[in-house]
Amino acid sequence: MEWIQQLINGISLGSIYALIALGYTMVYGIIKLINFAHGDVFMVGSFIGFYSITVFGLGFFPALIISMVACALFGVIIERIAYKRLRNATRIAALITAIGVSLLIEYGVIYIRGAQPEAYPNIFSNKTFSILGAQISIQSVLILSVSVVLMILLQFIVHKTKTGKAMRAVSHDVEAAKLMGINVDNTISATFAIGSALAGAAGVIFGVYYTKIDPLMGVIPGLKAFVAAVLGGIGIIPGAMVGGLVLGVVETIVSALGFSLWRDAAAFIILILILIFRPSGIFGKNTREKV
């Protein structure tokens, strides 16, 4: 019984990692940039959801949608202002810019509203029901279903729409895509928009599930999601989903065995092992690395 409960705990945690990891992986896949500001977009999304619910009295779904739209815009603005002009610069310059943007967002939010944490209002009842002896709250069911729906939607966009096709083409070969008449700038913006929207959704879900949000809340989930993306194979969308879920379940197992203080360490040990033994990740194909 305890193990079923732990599995549910792990999957809930993992689905949040997966939603954030998707944004990392999409951006990496298309412009080979590790967008360290992504965890902070997640934080901003969480706050937008919080204010939509508390100040404007909206329900969960309107708040979720507002947060996704706002984060999509935010992501595009970040890309246009900070990353676009660095597209032909060295990778390290872009990476350092991403860290700078991350710090700017974190401390910008602290400057605007202070560093004190905020408690998400209880918008779902705390009712739980038990399946096979495991306690499942209505919240976690809803959160899991929202995550699954968003992931299916993403698969649909990437594989069945024109934008998705353009994204795949740009990620494959930027020059060739340009020659085929694809507007690379718009495609990159669309990628940022979709990835950031998912982070915004993850932010609202995180708030509802874990209650406490604060301006630095994006740092650790952002790093964990990065690990998840690398674990699944960075740049590969199904890899991010699987990587996120695996990471969530592994962390839960580590705590369940009584090593709760080792939980964060476990995530980063996984990162190190993956980088040593299978740098392209679970789903990655071994390609020749251009040096």
């Binding site: 305890e2 732990q6 705990n9 945690l13 705590s255 369940a256 009584g258 709760s260 203080l261 964060d264």
Partner: peptide
């Protein structure tokens, strides 16, 4: 007997263990 570290947000797995 279990421990957590300040700033953690997910305590469910350890709590499940305590419940056990």
């Amino acid at each position: 007997q279990e421990s957590y570290v300040a700033k953690d947000t997910d305590f469910r797995s350890t709590l499940t263990r305590i419940k056990g």
